[in-house]
């Protein structure tokens, strides 16, 4: 089996999620007799030649210097037509979300996105989460496949070192008529809340129900001297400004205590808070994915519990 791993670069630096995908590919290859190659657009970082992989394919073309989904698709199309890999693995980055589905349609090769495991069990088995992380599904593959790997699914420190050669691969992108024109990147003006330094965070999820209930969480935060955090829906509904959002499209936090109130624990939320020292979750659904990463769990209605905790803490402070 021939596996290619695409190495995404952000401003010249290798994307961490791509390296995790490489670690996953190596792990799979060790259990089978597969061979792993890396594919990289533009200059090859030295780092990449220090891993145990068969080769690095380097594709240098001015069209690939900055991200354009149509040029990326055509370049990769030419790589695949020349080398026929059985599986191509990507990190499940936002960029992957933008161009790899298009590549899948172009090649007529299915794209199994956001996988948490690639295994060999009498053949390739891909595991991904469905129903918002409530169910896992194992998929089998016939023919070739494109795969993306969820952030954090494989550990970076499990990458095996070695050395490898770099091969140049020529592409011709003249045929592409670009109809997508990416422009400048920007950050919205930074708010006043820096959750990354917070020692205690009381985080509110959709389980809070309505805006009028927000004071229940705010009072608890106040007595704890905590910052307020939130999941995405709470920001989408306008109950808190965006600067309070924790997760892949919000802030990454690592407080001493993260108290999750009515948050289900979707992966995009988890990536922003799983580094917290103590995670306490209150959720009425005992099967909510948040309990997979919580140190302490309370399966209950937050409206019955939270005001009482606030009172207990107030009494203690006197």
């Amino acid at each position: 089996m021939n596996i290619f791993v695409f190495i995404q670069k952000d401003n010249g630096t290798i994307n961490r999620n791509s390296l995790e995908a490489l670690a996953g590919a190596q792990q799979f290859a060790r259990a089978t007799d597969a061979q792993v190659s890396a594919v990289c657009f533009g200059e090859v970082n030295d780092q990449l030649t220090e891993y145990d992989i068969q080769q690095v394919l380097s594709i240098s073309d001015p069209g690939l210097n900055s991200y354009n989904p149509q040029l990326y698709c055509e370049a990769f199309n030419q790589v695949i037509s020349a080398h026929h890999p059985d599986m191509v693995i990507f990190g499940h980055t936002y960029q992957t979300r933008d161009w790899v589905p298009r590549l899948s349609a172009k090649l007529d090769i299915p794209f199994v996105s956001d996988c948490i495991r690639i295994q060999n069990q009498n053949g390739l088995i891909l595991t991904r989460q469905i129903y918002q992380g409530k169910i896992n599904t194992d998929l089998k593959v016939e023919g070739s496949v494109l795969v993306s790997i969820q952030s954090g699914a494989y550990r970076l420190d499990s990458i095996v070192s070695g050395n490898t050669s770099v091969q140049q691969f020529e592409v011709n992108l003249d045929s592409v008529k670009c109809t997508v024109h990416p422009g400048e990147k920007f950050q919205e003006s930074k708010g006043s809340v820096d959750l990354s330094r917070a020692k205690i965070i009381v985080a509110v999820g959709r389980g809070i129900g309505k805006e009028e209930n927000m004071p229940i969480a705010k009072e608890l935060a106040e007595v704890l001297g905590a910052e307020l955090g939130s999941s995405r829906p709470v920001v989408d509904y306008g109950w808190l400004p965006h600067e309070h959002q924790v997760g892949s499209s919000g802030q990454t936090v690592s407080p001493k205590l993260y108290l999750a109130l009515g948050i289900s624990g979707a992966i995009q939320h988890q990536v922003g808070m799983k580094g917290s020292s103590n995670i306490v979750a209150i959720n009425k659904d005992g099967n909510a994915p948040i309990f997979e990463i919580a140190d302490y769990g309370i399966v209950a209605d937050l409206f019955e519990i939270v005001p009482k905790i606030t009172q207990t803490l107030k009494d203690h402070k006197g």
Binding site: N136, D138, K140, G297, V299
Partner: peptide, 19 residues
């Protein structure tokens, strides 16, 4: 090139939660 369902299951916990 095709994808088939092998099975579905409830995910296993990675962390021991104290309830």
């Amino acid at each position: 090139n095709k994808i088939f369902l092998d099975k579905m299951y409830i995910p296993q916990k990675v962390k021991e939660t104290t309830f």
